[in-house]
Design a protein around this nucleic acid. Sequence first.
DNA 1: TTGAAAGCGCTACCAG
DNA 2: CTGGTAGCGCTTTCAA
Lengths: 358, 358
Amino acid sequence: MKKTGIRDVAKASGVSISTVSRAFTRPDLVSEKTRRKILKTADSLDFNISRSATALKSGQTYRVALLMNEEITSWFNTQVFAGIDSVMHKAGYDVDLFEHIDTAKNRSDFFTTLPVRCNVDAVFVASFAVDPHEAKRLRRIHVPIVGINTPTTANSDASISIDDEQGMYVATRHLIELGRHNLAYACSDPVTSINSSIDARTTGFVRACREAATTRDLDWRIVSVPRGKAFADSALEALLTLEDFPDGICCQIDMMAIPLMIKLAGRGHTCPRDYSLVGFDDSPYADTVNLTTMRQDPYLMGMKAASKALSLINGHAPDHAHETVTPELILRGSDAPRETTDAIQTDARPTQANIITG
Amino acid sequence: MKKTGIRDVAKASGVSISTVSRAFTRPDLVSEKTRRKILKTADSLDFNISRSATALKSGQTYRVALLMNEEITSWFNTQVFAGIDSVMHKAGYDVDLFEHIDTAKNRSDFFTTLPVRCNVDAVFVASFAVDPHEAKRLRRIHVPIVGINTPTTANSDASISIDDEQGMYVATRHLIELGRHNLAYACSDPVTSINSSIDARTTGFVRACREAATTRDLDWRIVSVPRGKAFADSALEALLTLEDFPDGICCQIDMMAIPLMIKLAGRGHTCPRDYSLVGFDDSPYADTVNLTTMRQDPYLMGMKAASKALSLINGHAPDHAHETVTPELILRGSDAPRETTDAIQTDARPTQANIITG
DNA sequence: TTGAAAGCGCTACCAG
DNA sequence: CTGGTAGCGCTTTCAA
């Protein structure tokens, strides 16, 4: 059984294929009556315009690539993807995912093979640096590059990035202003091959500490642990090993802060009673555990990146090609001034519920 | 500046376009030498085969659709998507996401518009029931349908589902065997328009309770709360409202269990001292909070669903068209026999870490 | 407002 | 092993 094609519809509605085509893509050029008949016939024949043919004819691919370090399943990457997809999908584009452009091998595979060339209308790069040589290679395929949290603005046509350095600076300042004077920064070892934007957070921490240390007593240290499933446990042990347990901890990401908060409590260090804790991301469960954190909105960043890409594809320069957003300090319950010793309050709200008893 | 096409490459390497084409797609049909020259030329010209043209020619679309209730950003949906994408992407397919096929409106928009018809080679349906009428409509477009956690097997050509009913039955039995006799099941109100597979878990809980209640004293109840951001808080309040606080709580999902565990502790109910708790999913932080839970692996389910789809697309029936997987009880620390009153132990492992002091 | 026809870039059949 | 060529389904210009 052959699939219905545009000419079947044309025949069945007694018009030419040009008219059928127009009925779908330029409704205004077809008389109301004809158009209605065509649409009805098409529907009953289960016909739809072929995207491949349209794409081929148009010279566009209606496809974009999203390059990510690590997996899509991390909170940040999922949000970015969902944000991009929400606008690109609506605009008629598919988004092709390329994960793990992080190891030297995958990276070189990708950039020498360049599977995307001639097959995408734009490429998004999330959370890592494209090196100039790679950028040039990408650029040669005449496709706009838009960066999301790329460490530099240099190798893309547009970008949107969170100010990681400043964000962690603010978080650290917050702890310092609370009177904390023995700080630790818990983070994962940087991936040397990738220059992830997240590493700028360390710089922010260090800057705040150095600055404060000039005018008052301040101890601080960086606790950097190997990546991997047990990274939070590693940090936990490392912190417990310190001769003086810190009275303030900044975490590179909430996924570090949350396990730390929970497990430190099990080891006798309760926050904010014994120390103040601040995270970064405002990712899932940050509110549940009442974590004070720097909020960023990667979904929105994805959407904005997609808009920029769309502009670029259509030949206009985007309004703000390179945009920086500032994360916001969300004050919850994991931080407290030096004196306070309150336990964390979980916020309880009124509720409605069905109770079914057996 | 015109884009390089297959004929530029043909000309530049002194062969015909057929040969160029074959060099890419049927390397074995081209002499080693010729092929190498072509590939080199193509590379230097930044040429690549056009997927749109290939698709058009082949009659396939090299695109599949993934229909989801709710957002892709939930843990389950992300995992499924990532699993599907990992195999489909490798096989040369794009996956198109259609989120929120859950409200009556979105649903009818989708199924009357059917934006996918003629434009995908397969459709995946995740976590909700396609009704027979919709299935027929989908089927008419001659595209295999593969279900993931669909409540029934009837409206798909292949499927892979977790046994939600049995899973929750096992979880509940576990609590009963521990000697718990006052059980609560915490869940979200079902979405009436959607018949999500997750609702079968309730049935499993009820079955275990009814069964046990015939031979011994057992109180049980279902605490069902409205969906939405505050669902765990609603459940919390509802539980605290009960005249006798339960000594065993089953949660529909870990995202219910985890906040409950944390917030109940803040309200004086510590698990497993005061009650036993079991979740469902083994999603992020379940291990961190030491939650006993039923594990499922949606990433793997996605991969398997994708393999089935690939078989179907290529005309072979998949090995097991309809597959059911059984979730696995992961014993951690949130459950205990009636007597025990130990506090939760977080597991601490040895570690290596760099300590950098400022 | 509609129709005829060229051609997007590729693949596959058929010849050589 | 290689080349010529028809045609996949659509859009678009040009004519009517």
